[in-house]
């Protein structure tokens, strides 16, 4: 049996020893013709041999089949280093993925996400944000107009006013979206994206703004980041601040990215001006609040090292597909 090399040989062996013409088969078939006294012994012995032969054949067959499977699999080899079948994978635009990242940080702190129209009235974009007509602060915004008092919003801040008109405090909200300014050069595109934040509640302080933005900066740029507040001017906040994050490249030592200052400006913020509360009928003695606004492109550029703002709007897939 050991000498049988393959399944065909095994079948030959089976036919030879157990086939219709095999000696054992002939013997077993001839039992009725034997003397009665011999029949039990011959029958018992003959069947024992038959069973042993069958078992041996079966065992050998199992061995041979296993060997043939191994050979067959061995034969079916692929070049496993060839590339896989292409399942196309798309990409979110970096503005969207950054926007989501910002949203998720604030949502995890309990903020809602509000949206508002991109074509706005002068009232929401300027007046109710404490930029009266002919106020010099308006000259900071180069505004696109649709008519005398309808314009493309120059920031996402009008959503603040729309939210406060609809809801009494407490307010914890961010407002992401597009904004437009009439400016186009290496560091400005006429359309850009902002995320506005607004918190109004009893007992909200500038220190709370600082703590909140520290949480944000660390979630966005790494747990080692520091922030610093610099006084600034915005008509709709008082006090107003600009917020810097310690440079993620040099860790505050000073490098080319941060222009040797160790700090990178990331957003503007401040305590909501009582005049803004007056426009929406909030009691500024009872409630205080803070607001902040950041450019999504700016955050994305800092985080991903993008050096040219205009790439965001060229929609070249060699850019889009990197992120």
């Amino acid at each position: 049996m050991e000498a049988v090399a393959d399944l065909a040989g095994l079948e030959e062996t089976r036919v030879r020893f157990l086939g219709r013409k095999a000696a054992l088969t002939t013997l077993l078939r001839s039992i009725p013709e034997l003397p009665a006294a011999d029949r039990p012994n011959v029958g018992r012995f003959g069947n024992l041999v038959k069973r042993e032969l069958e078992a041996a054949l079966e065992a050998r067959q199992a061995v041979l089949e296993a060997g043939e499977l191994v050979d067959a699999l061995e034969h079916d080899r692929l070049d496993v280093t060839l590339p896989g079948r292409t399942l196309p994978l798309g990409h979110l635009h970096l503005i969207t993925s950054t926007r989501r990242e910002i949203e998720d940080i604030f949502v995890s702190m309990g903020y809602s996400v509000a949206e508002g129209p991109e074509i706005e009235t002068d009232y929401y974009n300027f007046e109710a944000l404490n930029h009266p007509a002919d106020h010099p602060a308006r000259s900071l915004h180069d505004t696109f107009f649709v008519s005398d008092d309808i314009l493309l919003r120059t920031h996402t801040s009008p959503v603040q006013v729309r939210v406060m008109e609809k809801k009494r405090p407490p307010v914890y909200v961010i407002a992401p979206g597009k904004a437009y300014r009439r400016d186009s050069d290496a560091t400005h595109t006429p359309m850009f994206h902002q995320v506005e934040g607004l918190v109004v509640d009893e007992g909200v302080t500038l220190a709370d703004l600082k703590g909140t933005l520290e949480v944000f900066a660390r979630a966005m740029f790494g747990s080692d980041r520091q922030i610093r507040l610099r006084p600034h001017f915005f008509p709709f906040t008082e006090p107003s601040v600009e917020v810097d994050v310690s440079c993620m490249i040099c860790d505050g030592v000073g490098c080319r990215l941060c222009k040797r200052s160790g700090w990178l400006e990331i957003l503007g913020a401040g305590m909501v001006d009582p005049n803004v509360f007056a426009f929406v009928g909030y009691d500024s003695e009872k409630y205080t609040g803070f607001a902040f606004g950041m450019g999504i492109e700016r955050i994305a550029m800092l985080k991903h090292g993008v050096t040219d703002l205009r790439l965001f709007y060229e929609n070249d897939l060699r850019f889009v597909r990197q992120f």
Binding site: F106, D201, E202, G211
Partner: peptide
């Protein structure tokens, strides 16, 4: 402003999302 502590708002109610 560097002297300010960092705190979080004393949130009284509500949820986000």
């Amino acid at each position: 402003l560097g002297q300010l502590p960092s705190t979080l708002p004393p949130r009284t109610e509500g949820r986000g999302g």
